[in-house]
């Protein structure tokens, strides 16, 4: 595991180390089975093309999961993910890089907890934010 991140290490504007993924059609099928989401748009190319898409689409909830992975790697085992939300704004396709990113927007102490707020998003190879969202984490303090 990565070393523990502390509240004092974080400032507004700081970026979360990006997590670069390249979902394959095989990963989409694995995720469909593991999540129980069997909507054909995500594994049946004929179905996707009949809906006007060039290919099957990466599940929105899988992109949520990847953002979660990025954050949990960053906050370490003593950090707590309190909130994570995202909008499925753009479509992503298997075989393309999907880059998870995040940036600290605010930090404060509330009710004894050391809180950090972030904006998070996934980006496609054209630099478009396809899954914008926000997150709130609590970090341990050296204080």
């Amino acid at each position: 595991m990565a070393k523990q991140l502390y509240y004092e290490d974080v400032e507004a504007g700081m970026e979360v180390p990006p997590l670069v993924k390249k979902p394959t059609t095989q990963q989409l099928v694995k995720w469909a089975a593991a999540s129980g989401d069997f909507y054909q748009l995500h594994y049946d190319k004929d179905f996707a093309q009949a809906q006007g898409f060039p290919s099957v689409l990466v599940h929105g909830k899988l992109k949520f999961g990847l953002l979660g992975q990025m954050l949990i790697d960053w906050i370490g085992e003593d950090g707590v993910l309190k909130k994570l939300g995202c909008s499925y704004r753009g479509t992503d396709f298997p075989g393309e890089d999907l880059i998870c990113k995040g940036k600290v927007t605010n930090k404060y102490v509330k009710d004894g907890e050391h809180i950090v707020e972030l904006e998070v998003w996934t980006e496609n190879p054209r630099g478009e934010r396809t899954t914008p969202g926000t997150a709130v984490v609590a970090l341990p303090s050296r204080g």
């Binding site: 694995k30 089975a33 593991a34 999961g65 990847l66």
Partner: peptide, 16 residues
């Protein structure tokens, strides 16, 4: 087992 399969499908090796 269900947790492990879900994490594996995400591609997340976190041992937790």
């Amino acid at each position: 087992g269900a947790i492990r399969r879900y994490a594996d499908a995400i591609g997340d090796p976190n041992p937790l």
